[in-house]
Deep mutational scan, measured.
Amino acid sequence: DVEPGKFYKGVVTRIEKYGAFINLNEQVRGLLRPRDMISLRLENLNVGDEIIVQAIDVRPEKREIDFKYIP
């Protein structure tokens, strides 16, 4: 289970104008929005990159997770 405030290693699987989709595993995916990136820009991410993200909002009923990147 993903818990708000905890850090997780994930893989960038898709990049859109509104953010990057990060997979923690095959069943768990969330969104990293540009506003939640500190010292990292969306255009510097590539599909396949491994990054450490912090879960900031977890909505299991909608199967949605918002992430934050903190270097």
Rank of each mutant, 00 (worst) to 15 (best):
Asn25Asp: 10
Val12Phe: 00
Lys68Asp: 02
Ala55His: 01
Pro34Asn: 08
Leu31Arg: 03
Glu50Ser: 15
Arg14Trp: 08
Asp1Tyr: 15
Lys9Gly: 05
Leu24Gly: 01
Pro71Ala: 10
Val53Thr: 01
Val2Gly: 03
Val58Gln: 05
Lys17Glu: 13
Asp1Ser: 15
Ile52Tyr: 10
Gln54His: 05
Ile15Pro: 00
Asp66Gly: 07
Lys62Tyr: 09
Leu32Asn: 01
Val53Ser: 00
Arg29Gly: 11
Gln27Asp: 13
Asp49Ser: 05
Arg33Asn: 03
Asn25Val: 05
Gly19Pro: 01
Phe21Glu: 05
Val58Ala: 05
Asp66Ser: 10
Gly10Tyr: 01
Arg14Asn: 07
Tyr8Gln: 01
Gln27Val: 13
Leu31Glu: 02
Asn44Ile: 08
Lys9Trp: 14
Leu24Ile: 13
Arg29Pro: 02
Arg33Cys: 03
Glu61Ala: 12
Leu42Gln: 03
Ile22Asn: 00
Val28Ile: 14
Ile38Val: 13
Leu40Gly: 08
Lys6Met: 11
Ile52Met: 11
Pro71Ile: 07
Asn23Val: 09
Gln27Met: 14
Arg33Leu: 05
Val47Thr: 06
Ile65Ala: 06
Arg63Val: 07
Ile65Gly: 03
Glu43Tyr: 09
Arg63His: 14
Gly30Ser: 01
Gln27Asn: 14
Phe67Gln: 02
Ala55Asp: 01
Ile56Tyr: 14
Pro71Lys: 07
Ile15Lys: 07
Tyr18Pro: 01
Lys17Cys: 10
Arg35Ala: 12
Gly5Met: 09
Leu42Asp: 01
Glu64Cys: 06
Pro60Asp: 08
Tyr18Phe: 13
Arg63Asp: 11
Lys17Gly: 10
Gly5Ala: 04
Phe7Val: 06
Tyr8Pro: 00
Arg63Asn: 14
Phe21Ile: 12
Val11Ser: 07
Leu40Lys: 10
Ala55Trp: 03
Ala20Asn: 00
Tyr69Trp: 09
Glu50Met: 15
Gln54Val: 12
Gly48Asn: 07
Asp57His: 14
Arg29Cys: 09
Tyr8Cys: 02
Val47Leu: 14
Glu26His: 15
Ile70Cys: 08
Val58Pro: 04
Ile15Met: 07
Leu31Met: 08
Tyr8Thr: 01
Leu31Pro: 02
Lys9Cys: 12
Gln54Glu: 07
Phe7Thr: 07
Thr13Phe: 05
Ile22Thr: 00
Val58Arg: 04
Phe21Lys: 03
Asn44Lys: 09
Gly10Met: 03
Glu61Tyr: 05
Asn44Pro: 02
Ile65Leu: 09
Asp1Arg: 15
Arg41Tyr: 11
Asp49Met: 13
Arg63Thr: 08
Ala20Val: 10
Glu26Trp: 15
Val28Met: 10
Asp49Trp: 05
Pro4Cys: 10
Ala20His: 01
Asp57Thr: 13
Val12Gln: 00
Ala20Asp: 00
Lys6Pro: 03
Asp49Glu: 09
Gly5Asp: 07
Leu31Cys: 04
Ser39Tyr: 13
Arg33Trp: 03
Phe7Glu: 06
Lys17Met: 11
Gly30Met: 04
Val53Asp: 00
Asp1Pro: 15
Met37Ala: 06
Gly5Asn: 09
Asp66Asn: 09
Thr13Lys: 07
Ile22Tyr: 00
Asn44Ser: 14
Phe7Met: 09
Pro71Arg: 08
Tyr8Val: 04
Lys17Pro: 15
Lys62Ser: 12
